[in-house]
Structures are given as C-alpha cells and as structure tokens.
Design a protein around this nucleic acid. Structure first.
Length: 643
RNA sequence: GCCGUUGUAGCUCAGUGGUAGAGCACUUCCUUGGUAAGGAAGAGGUCAUGAGUUCAAUUCUCAUCAACGGCUCCA
C-alpha cells in the first residue's frame, strides 16, 4: 500500500503495518515521541494497522490533536488511580480540555480534598512508569450493555443509550477499562509530569436539576520542564489578576457592609472611569449620539411593557413597595430610553436617533457567579439605543461595529472573538419573542453586515437576547475565564411593545428598529479587563497618577510643589513623594505603583528649572525643561487617544 | 442557586484547647540622601459573625456571612 506523508513523500508498506511501525521506519526519534496518527484526516491509535493507501500525519505534543489525545489518555490514567483509592467509584466522562483534562466521577458519598491530590498524583506516576499500553477492544453494543449492567453503572449505561447500535469500543490500560471511542497514546509511560489542579462540583450532563458529580481537573506533560513552565505561567497570570492589582493599585474594593458584588471605586479607579467616560462622550458626540439621563428605578408596569419581567425577574433585585406600587431597581436602560424616544414625536427626518447614557444598573447575579469586577451586581453601562428605519439599519449596525474596532485599536485589544448569536426555532414563544419571520429577517441583515464588512465572527444558535439577535465580543481574563466585553444587539420586539413610532415620508406611522449597543461594556468589566490587559501598566492617558514627583530631599519640596502646580494647570495628574526616604526608595515605590513617569528633582534641576525624567519600566530618560516635559506628555496623551 | 475549599493586623502569611506572631505597609525620631528597599523605636487584631461542647474556644462542633475553584445562569 502507498502511504503519503505531509511533505507529499510517498512510501510503500505492507498492508496491515501499524502507525507506530511506519513512524519507526522514518526515525527512532519520531517513534519515541509520536502520540497518535492522523490517517486520512482521522486521528487514530498508533497501534492500529493501516490496511490500504492512506495519507498519514504523525501527531506529537506540538499538535493540538496530539496534546488532546495525550490529555485524554491522562484522564484514563487518573481514573485508574481513583479506582485504586476509591473502590466502587463510578465514572461519567473524562475529556481533554484547553489546559489539561478532567474526569467527572461519582464518589458515592466520599469527598476528595486538595490534600488527597499528592497521593493520587503519586499513584498516577507509579502507574505511568509501568508503561501500560492503551489497548483498544470492540464489542457489540448488547455485550457492552450487559457488561455495565453487571457493574450496576448507570452512568456508562446512559452513555451507551446515546450511542448507535453496532460495535462499541473500549480501552484498557493496566487495571482500568473504560468505554471510550479513543484514540489514545501508545502507553502510559509517555506521561512524565502530572499535576492535579483542582476539584469542583459539576452537574451531571450540565443540568442543574441533576445530581452533582465530583469533577477533578488535572494537567500532564511529556516532560517535567513543561509542567514547571506551565506552573510558572499560571503564577505570572495570577500577578495580572485584576483582583490582586485592584488591591495593590487601590483601584476598587469590596466591603461586607456594602454587599457582595457591589464594588466601591477608590480615587485611582474613579480616575480611570472619568477618562473612559470622556473618551466615550467625545466618540459618541462625533458619531451623532445625544446624551440622556434616567432614574435608577422604575415601576413594575414598565418592565411588564418591555417584556423583561417574565424573563429576568429572578435576576433583578426584589421590588420595593411604595404607595401601593412596586418599583424595581433597573437592570437595563432600554425601557427608560424607549420612553424618551416615545415622547420625541419623531419623523423619519429625525432618524436615526441615538440616545446614550452611562446608565447604572443593578442585577442580582447568582452568588456563585460573582467574580471580582468582571461579574458584579451594580454596573454602569456604556449604553446607547439607536432608533432607525429598516433602510438605515445596516449602515447603523456597521457604524456601531466600526466604533468597536476603533476602541479596540485605542486599547490595543487584539485577542477577541466576535460571536453572532441567533435564536433557536424550537424556543420561540419561550426563550424568544414569537415572531419567526422577523428573527430570520434581522438575522440575515446582521449576517450580511458582518460578511460585507469582512468582520471575522462565529455564529452560535440559541444564544440570542429574547428580543433579537446580537453580536458579543468575547475576551478572556488573566486566569482564562471568558467574558463578554462589548455587545451590539438588534431589537425588533421592544419598540412595538412600547408603541414606539415615527412618521414616514408618506405620513404613515411606522415602528423603528432599535439597536442596543455597549462597545465599552460596563465600567466594572471593562476596567477589570483593562487592568489585566495592561497588567496594571495603564497607558499614560488612563493612568490614575501620570507623574510622580520625587524630590531628592526635603530641601526641594518647594520646587516639587511648583512643578505639581504647573502639571495641574495642564491637566496632568501628579503627586509628590515627600516621605523622608532616599531617592532609590521613592523610585522603587513609584515603579511598583506603575506610575508612567517619575520626575527626580534636586539641586541641579531647581537651579536650571528642569526635571530629570524617568519612565516606568524604561529607566532614566534624561533631563528636560518643565515646559518641554509638559508638551511631550500632552502630545503622548493626544497620540494615545486619537487612533 | 449547587458542589468543594478557605476566613488570624492595611497586604502576604505563620501559629495555638490556657485570652496572639512574622515580613511588608503605617507613625515618630535619626539621617539630607541622585535613578528599584538607610537606621532605630512605636502603634495596630472582639483571630469573619452567632450559637454549642468545655473549668477554659481564635483553636473542636454546628449555623450564618463572605471570598476563592468549578457547575448552572448571564437582558
């Protein structure tokens, strides 16, 4: 048979030669590290014979599929160790994930704690050293059902139910056998470095009405060095964590007396908010938005009109009763804005009307969901609602996307995914407003805009808002959690529910389409994200303190104060370190506080009217006159915000 | 909301069935110093909260609250 390799090289082998033997025929080195083979596009065990002409690619640790196979096999290894320590344990599924693998198990009342990790790891290492082969075996489905019935294993029986009749594959390594479609690495000996990461509860089949299984996360590597590097990388990520930096840089805080998920912005954090709002105000003014302001509460009747109540009552703070009326804290700004549009008596000549507000909302997020600033219960949204005609829609939607992209350039955000969420037909009338025709029409409009603008995106069914399709921008926190940072949503439902109308050119009343958009998301999430994105090293225009003035000794405090005044007059945020400390110490602390510029001032500077400039993380940047320094800084700020 | 873990000074963390300790930060004094930590002294804690066991609880038990790791959710 003819075997074709990725480099188009073709070699002849006897039919039935295994993948591993083919690898060996190329080189012993390859045979030692190869994990699996991609045969005609299908990832397969190396031990499986190849029977006819095929294209083969050998997968190693450096291939995503190789890694996944390695981790999948590691999950089986962990399962074997678990069975040793917890006889009778039942297994659900154990897939590879982005950074390792997990196995969901039913410990039947027992628990695993972090203290148990080391003994499980030790057992895994011991089993790995045995270099047990992962042996594939097929049996008819009836036989498999009998096998698991005998073991009284309801989980695997449930898995089998979902499989097609026919041959079922099993894998055995050492004393552990698992229902598994594979593929697997040749033997356990390839797994050299093992680390159990954490243990967590996970609902069976991801359904919160089901019982919870114990999910054990682990990660393995072919070399100890890889594990060490991975752990070091995690350590680095933790240093970027906005919760840590938020404390270290005094950006925000939480307090038990205030409540969970209710951040308090400290002066440094409030500066960043002010700068973001300034940027948004200018950007929106230039794009034809007008600003509005609305109260934080509204009567129940408005949320009945909007249609939010049936969908979201659970995640709103409970209502307050006043004079026989129920008032809710607002969880979204749209109904208030719809009311304003409704009073504007708009004609088609006025459209589009774009109402913007940094609206403060309150959402009663589930307690287990709260996460630093990224998931909170009080939040201020970079919100706006655009009311336009159907003809104007595509252009408006495109303009909103352009605004996103400009913001991303300003903040240098390049790792994100645009997610286009559509409805699911079987949930019309339940999760979604029941108007199939409008759903399809608006989804097509959105899709067309995305395609025409060449915006890369992924389309996900059954993730839309109840009132229309949406585009979310997904980003990741330092520790790898995924978040929506910005959103752009179509709403064809609420304008009708609020009776919103405009007069068209034929003097008839028509209902506008509404676009909800929040390119900067919420202050909370956006600043949480930015903190991690910049690792606390905010660019000059955003930095809470832009300049730290460091007098060499208290003899130069007066000069420092004069500089401080001049910077103030130029809208540059500075502070003076007047502590009775040596200059090295003041520099160190300013560096740790990540202040972009330090001005060292002593005798020489005072006499010459100059400042000695030091740039954060760069070091000494020479001496300049105060005027030149100020104009340099202003230019830098200008550059950063006018991308 | 659910499963698991944790809660000691502003921060990071030791520790103990007999009413608490370190480093950093902070205050004062000495020092007047030139590009990442000068020296000394001092102050600071209802050991998350509430109950229980005990002669005695920060320590053991239970409950509550909060944080953390996941799951479910996310207008």
């Amino acid at each position: 048979m003819k075997i074709t390799f990725p480099d188009k090289n073709v070699r002849e082998y006897a039919p039935g030669t295994t993948g591993l033997d083919i690898a060996k025929s190329i080189s012993e080195g390859l045979a030692r590290k190869v994990l699996a083979a991609r045969v005609n596009g299908e990832v397969r065990d190396l031990a499986r014979p190849v029977d006819s002409d095929a294209a083969i690619e050998f997968l190693t640790w450096d291939d995503t599929d190789g890694k996944s196979t390695f981790w999948h096999s590691s999950a089986h290894l962990m399962a074997e160790a678990l069975e040793h320590f917890y006889p009778g344990v039942k297994f659900w599924v154990g897939p590879p994930v982005e950074n390792g693998f997990y196995y969901d198990v039913d410990l039947r009342g027992k628990t695993i704690s972090n203290e148990d990790f080391s003994k499980i790891e030790a057992k895994m290492k011991e089993l790995a050293k045995q270099k047990n082969a992962y042996v594939r075996k097929e049996m008819p489905k009836e036989e498999a059902v009998r096998y698991f019935s005998d073991k009284d294993d309801e989980y695997k029986l449930d898995l089998l139910e979902g499989l097609e009749d026919g041959q079922i594959t099993f894998y055995t390594q050492g004393n552990f056998t698992d229902l598994c479609k594979g593929p697997h690495i040749p033997n356990t000996g390839l797994i050299k470095a093992i680390k159990l990461m954490n243990v967590a509860g996970a609902y069976w089949k991801g359904d919160d009405s089901n019982k919870q299984l114990t999910r054990l996360y682990g990660v393995t590597f072919p070399k100890q060095k890889d594990l060490d590097e991975y752990l070091a990388m995690l350590e680095e990520a933790r240093k970027r964590d906005h919760r840590k930096l938020g404390r270290d840089l005094s950006l925000f805080m939480f307090d038990d007396d205030v409540g969970p998920g209710l951040p308090l912005w400290m002066p440094n954090g409030a500066v960043i908010i002010d700068e973001l709002e300034k940027l948004a105000r200018q950007t929106e003014r230039d794009a034809g938005y007008v600003r509005v302001r609305t109260p934080h509460i509204a009567k129940e009747s408005m949320y009945k009109t909007s249609g939010h109540l049936p969908y979201y009552a659970d995640s709103m703070y409970p209502p307050m009763e006043m004079e026989g009326e129920r008032y809710y804290l607002k969880a979204m700004n749209c109904p208030h804005h719809h009311k304003i549009f409704g009073h504007m008596n708009a004609s088609y000549r006025d459209l589009p009307i774009r109402l913007a507000e940094y609206g403060t909302c309150y959402r009663y997020e589930q307690s287990g969901e709260l996460f630093g600033l990224m998931r909170v219960r009080s939040l201020q949204m970079n919100d706006a609602h655009i009311y336009c005609t159907e003809e104007q829609f595509a252009e408006e939607f495109r303009a909103v996307n352009d605004m996103y992209l400009r913001y991303f350039r300003i903040f240098n955000i390049d790792k994100y995914v645009m997610r286009f969420s559509t409805h699911s037909a079987d949930k019309l009338g339940k999760k979604y407003v029941d108007n199939a025709e409008l759903w399809l029409k608006t989804e097509k409009m959105v899709r067309d805009v995305l395609v025409e603008s060449g915006i890369p995106h992924v389309e996900v069914a059954d993730e839309a808002a109840f009132y229309g399709p949406k585009i979310d921008v997904q980003v990741w926190s330092a520790i790898g959690k995924e978040f929506t940072i910005a959103t752009n949503q179509v709403d064809f439902a609420q304008p009708g529910r609020f009776g919103l109308e405009y007069r068209n050119s034929k003097n008839e009343m028509e209902t506008p389409i509404c676009i909800h958009r929040a390119p900067l998301g919420t202050h909370e999430r956006f600043i949480g994200f930015l903190t991690e994105h910049y690792a606390g090293n905010f660019p000059l225009w955003l930095a809470p303190h832009q300049v730290s003035i460091l007098p060499i000794s208290d003899r130069f405090n007066a000069y420092a104060l004069r500089i401080h005044g001049l910077l103030n007059n130029s809208d540059i945020r500075s502070l003076i370190d007047r502590r009775d400390e040596k200059i090295g110490r003041k520099i160190r602390d300013a560096e740790l506080q990540k202040v972009p510029y330090m001005l060292i001032v002593g005798e020489k500077e005072e006499q010459e009217g100059t400042v000695s400039v030091r740039q954060h993380r760069q070091g000494d940047a020479g001496t300049r006159t105060i005027d030149l320094f100020i104009s340099d800084l202003k230019a830098e700020i200008q550059r950063q915000t006018s991308v």
